[in-house]
Amino acid sequence: MSGDLIAFMRAMARASFVWGSCDCSLVMADWCRAKRGVDPAASLRGRYSTAAGAMRHVIRLGGFEAMGRSLMAGCGFSVTGAPRVGDVGLVTHPIVGPVFAIRCALGWAVKSPEGFAVDEYPTIVAWSV
């Protein structure tokens, strides 16, 4: 794992999980912004503060996959079938369902209230960063 990804993940692991500012979607988007200078979640920032509020946007934008594909394509990210360390994706968490994640050496890292949950979650779609 590259040094900048390690530093980013350490900082995000210490940050409190907060809907609308430090949740799985926005942490993934923060990584994209740090690496490529574009924010795929710019249109969502500050627009929700609860899980229900986040879901309203997901539903309004056609579901997790449609929302992710649209926002990522709008920022110029390309889909990859072979995600590498530092890439991002939409994965299926066995308890919460679809979540956005960052690929690290040990699997997919998902922001959680405890820091990061890391596992080989099934990939729905991934993007090269």
Rank of each mutant, 00 (worst) to 15 (best):
V58H: 09
R56F: 11
R10Q: 14
G46W: 02
R14D: 09
G37T: 08
C32H: 05
R60Y: 15
A29H: 11
S43Y: 06
L26G: 01
G37Y: 08
V38N: 05
A34S: 14
S16I: 10
A34L: 13
M55P: 04
F8G: 06
G46P: 09
A42L: 09
T50S: 08
T50W: 03
V38D: 02
A34M: 12
M28L: 13
D39G: 02
V38G: 00
G53N: 15
S25M: 06
G53Y: 13
S49A: 15
A52P: 06
A41M: 02
R33Q: 15
R33E: 07
D30F: 03
T50N: 08
D30G: 01
I59Y: 12
F64R: 05
V38A: 05
G63E: 09
T50E: 06
I59K: 10
G53M: 15
A42G: 11
C22S: 04
A41E: 00
R56H: 13
F8K: 06
C24S: 05
I59P: 00
V58K: 02
R36F: 00
F64A: 07
M12H: 10
Y48D: 05
M55I: 15
R14T: 08
G63D: 10
V58Q: 06
G20D: 13
R56L: 10
A11T: 12
S21N: 04
G62E: 01
A52G: 10
A54G: 12
Y48P: 06
T50Q: 03
R36A: 01
